[in-house]
């Protein structure tokens, strides 16, 4: 249920993203989802990939600061109001979202939203109660 996300510290310098993408590409690692949080000096690259352990090793070996974070992937209808239908029960349940990002599935009419919660277990309970479908980790890695 919980999806493992890689978080990578990056300085805001030309070519840093390109280098990471190249390293992962050479190792045949496929990026499933991505988000970049940035400030004026540094950024945090968040990745969901098909092979977490291998990607983690490659990035660490090349000297990056990498951490594993547990996130939750939620499927929402790719239509107006889709996102709101998920956020409303979370608000009602008092669940705090640290950050989130979304992408659209290729073969279906669904979108996938990745959530990083302050309290992941509490969030999962709230989602279950609201009958919102949470994607199994294996499904996300294969999307």
């Amino acid at each position: 249920m919980k999806v493992k996300q890689l978080s990578i510290f990056m300085e805001n310098r030309a070519g840093r993203m390109a280098e990471i993408a190249r390293q992962l590409g050479e190792a045949r690692i496929n990026i499933r989802a991505l988000s970049l949080a940035d400030t004026s000096d540094f950024g945090i690259l968040r990745l969901i990939v098909n092979d977490v352990d291998k990607a983690m090793k490659i990035l660490k070996d090349s000297g990056h600061t990498v951490s594993l974070t547990e996130v939750v992937a939620v499927e929402v209808p790719d239509s107006p109001g889709g996102l709101a239908s998920v956020l409303e029960p979370l608000r009602a349940g008092g669940v705090n979202v640290e950050y989130m990002y979304a992408f659209v599935e290729k073969a279906t009419d669904k979108a996938v939203v990745i959530f990083r919660f302050e309290d992941i277990d509490a969030a999962v309970k709230v989602l279950a109660k609201a009958k919102i479908s949470v994607l199994p980790a294996e499904t996300v890695y294969k999307l």
Binding site: S7, T39, F42, I44, R46, T65, S67, T69, Y99, R116
Partner: peptide
């Protein structure tokens, strides 16, 4: 230098 000990995936913690 940001080591693993102080790294966080959240911008607000690094800030």
């Amino acid at each position: 230098e940001v080591s693993e000990g102080i790294f966080s995936d959240e911008v607000k913690k690094l800030e």
